[in-house]
Each structure stands twice: as structure tokens, then as C-alpha cells.
Amino acid sequence: MKRIFLFLATNVAILLVLSVTLRLFGVDRILNEQGTGLDINNLLIFSAVLGFAGSLFSLAISKWSAKRMMGVQVIEQPRTADEQWLVETVRRQAQAAGIGMPEVGIFNAPEMNAFATGARRNAALVAVSTGLLRGMSRQEAEAVLGHEVSHVANGDMVTLTLIQGVVNTFVIFLSRVIGYTVDKVVFKTERGHGPAFMITVIVAQLVLGILASMIVMWFSRQREFRADSGGATLAGRQSMISALERLRQAHPPALPDKMAAFGITGGLGDGLKRLFMTHPPLEERIAALRNAA
């Protein structure tokens, strides 16, 4: 979850900075009227350049931002038995997965968590929390490491970047089309753009960005199943199942299964919540591994 959250947060921040900067310098005055209305071709090119610039830059600084935001301490020289085990386990799994040795780090957090990030398969970062090292057996932790190494081997960060770039492009494009339409049709602005244009663009970009994030989240959920399968291959299927079971025990549902239908969080609310989940429910991931066996 932290890998996706850090990437999306960085992407949104970069898009915001780029949008404001281009607006201040007048670069985004791309909505020129060409007799019949919008210059759609120029707008689409502008949107693609801005959209992919945000996602690609987010990918490029993903390791740097993860280290700073999460306080990851990269293991340069193992000083403890746990650090030695972590480095050697990741080294062995990386060789088995056919990727270069990632950087290995630890971040201080009480919850059991881990993530992998990086722009290239052969120069990634795999980090685990202190809570995971304390709360899981080595067999379970090895499965979690295998899951993260599989994310790297599968190129999930690069694929996520490309999908985010396409999503950004359409959000930027459609928000400006909506802003132009509201400005010209509703507020009857005849020359240039009135205040309604920028206000509508900002609101539309926020709303469309939220809706578009559902696509990114759906993709993320599908890749989790594949990473679980990779972790099962690298560390053993039962170890992967055991690790997920450990996580489920640490995060029990708010209501027992038999009462969930009567709870305030059931029904439509849970359905909407699921659309924004970066990971599938642990029960589904465990069932998928057992069915695959």
C-alpha cells in the first residue's frame, strides 16, 4: 500500500506544481479558438506531455522520495543477524527472479509492512518495517520479501507509471474541455478565458482525478495477486499463505462475518470503498493462493 500511496501522492503534487507553473508563464494557453472552437490536437498533445511528465518524474524520484518520506535506513553493511538475513534473502530471491540486487532497507513502524519501488528492475529498493521483523517468523518474512521482489521482477512500477500517464492525460484534457465549455456556454465569455474557466478546470480535474484513480487502484489490486504468486514461488506457497494469515490476524474485520451485512459499513459503502483499495482483501488473496495449489 505504501508503494502505491507514495507514487500517487508524488504524482499529484508534481501535476499541481506543473499546472500552476505553466499557467503563470502562459504556456498552457493552448485552448486557442480556431474558428470553430477548441484546438483539440494541441490540447491533446499538451495534456499528454504534462500527464506523462508527472508520472515519469514520480517514477524517477520514487526511491528518493520513499527513503525520505518513510525514513528508510538502507543497509550498507549488515550490523545484526537480522540485517544479514534480510540482505542475503533478497540477494537470493533477486537472483532467482532474474533481476539486479535491490537496495535493502528498514523503516521504523509498528505495523507489519513492506514495499518495493524504483524506476528500473535492476536498481530497485526493497524495504521492510521493524514491526514486520518483530511480528513475523522468518519463513513468513521471506514470503513477504518474495512478494516485493516479484513486484520488481514483474515491472509493476513501470506499468503503473504508464497507466498513470494515460489517466493523467485524459484528466487534464477533459477538465480543460469542461472548463472551456462552461466558460463559453454558461458564462458567455467571448474573448479569452474568464475566471470561470480556471475555477471549473480545477474542480473538474479534482473530480476526474478521483474517478480516474479507480482505474489505477483496480490495476494495483490485480498485480497484488500476481506478486503473491511470485512470493509463493520464491518462498513457498504455505509460507506466503501464512504471511497473509498473520496480516489478517493483525487487522481483523470491524464486525464478524455473520454480522457484516447488518453493520453500518456493509453494503454500498463497502462497495464504494473497494473501488479505492490498492490491495484486494486478504481473504481473497489467501483463497487465490489456495485455489492455485
Score class of each variant (00 low, 15 high):
residue 170 F to R: 02
residue 180 Y to I: 01
residue 216 V to E: 08
residue 148 E to Y: 08
residue 188 K to G: 12
residue 165 G to T: 10
residue 196 A to S: 15
residue 144 V to M: 13
residue 169 T to Y: 15
residue 135 G to C: 11
residue 169 T to P: 13
residue 171 V to L: 04
residue 186 V to Q: 02
residue 172 I to W: 04
residue 146 G to E: 04
residue 173 F to N: 02
residue 160 L to C: 11
residue 159 T to M: 05
residue 135 G to P: 14
residue 220 S to V: 13
residue 199 I to H: 11
residue 162 L to K: 09
residue 173 F to R: 02
residue 206 L to Q: 13
residue 215 I to C: 06
residue 171 V to E: 02
residue 147 H to L: 04
residue 203 V to K: 08
residue 213 S to R: 00
residue 225 F to C: 00
residue 207 V to I: 08
residue 225 F to P: 13
residue 188 K to H: 11
residue 135 G to A: 10
residue 165 G to W: 07
residue 147 H to M: 03
residue 189 T to A: 11
residue 162 L to V: 15
residue 190 E to T: 14
residue 165 G to S: 07
residue 205 Q to C: 06
residue 144 V to C: 09
residue 160 L to E: 05
residue 165 G to L: 03
residue 223 R to L: 08
residue 154 N to H: 09
residue 157 M to S: 09
residue 160 L to D: 04
residue 188 K to T: 07
residue 162 L to Y: 13
residue 189 T to K: 05
residue 190 E to C: 06
residue 203 V to Y: 07
residue 174 L to V: 04
residue 195 P to W: 04
residue 221 R to I: 08
residue 186 V to K: 07
residue 218 W to P: 06
residue 204 A to S: 14
residue 146 G to K: 02
residue 147 H to W: 14
residue 206 L to E: 08
residue 197 F to K: 01
residue 137 S to G: 09
residue 198 M to Y: 13
residue 184 K to N: 01
residue 134 R to H: 15
residue 160 L to I: 05
residue 189 T to P: 06
residue 212 A to V: 08
residue 179 G to A: 03
residue 212 A to P: 15
residue 223 R to A: 00
residue 225 F to R: 01
residue 143 A to H: 12
residue 203 V to T: 07
residue 145 L to Q: 09
residue 171 V to T: 09
residue 174 L to N: 01
residue 136 M to Y: 12
residue 192 G to R: 10
residue 156 D to R: 01
residue 214 M to T: 10
residue 167 V to P: 13
residue 222 Q to D: 14
residue 209 G to N: 03
residue 137 S to P: 12
residue 184 K to S: 05
residue 177 V to F: 00
residue 167 V to F: 10
residue 211 L to K: 04
residue 207 V to M: 08
residue 179 G to P: 14
residue 155 G to Q: 07
residue 173 F to K: 00
residue 195 P to M: 03
residue 210 I to A: 15
residue 165 G to F: 14
residue 144 V to N: 05
residue 197 F to D: 00
residue 149 V to D: 04
residue 149 V to F: 07
residue 174 L to R: 02
residue 226 R to S: 11
residue 195 P to H: 00
residue 164 Q to M: 12
residue 202 I to D: 09
residue 215 I to K: 00
residue 174 L to S: 01
residue 166 V to H: 12
residue 178 I to M: 03
residue 161 T to P: 15
residue 197 F to H: 02
residue 186 V to G: 00
residue 208 L to I: 10
residue 214 M to F: 12
residue 146 G to S: 08
residue 189 T to S: 11
residue 152 V to H: 13
residue 136 M to P: 13
residue 177 V to L: 04
residue 138 R to D: 14
residue 161 T to S: 09
residue 180 Y to V: 01
residue 190 E to R: 10
residue 141 A to W: 14
residue 182 V to N: 03
residue 205 Q to P: 12
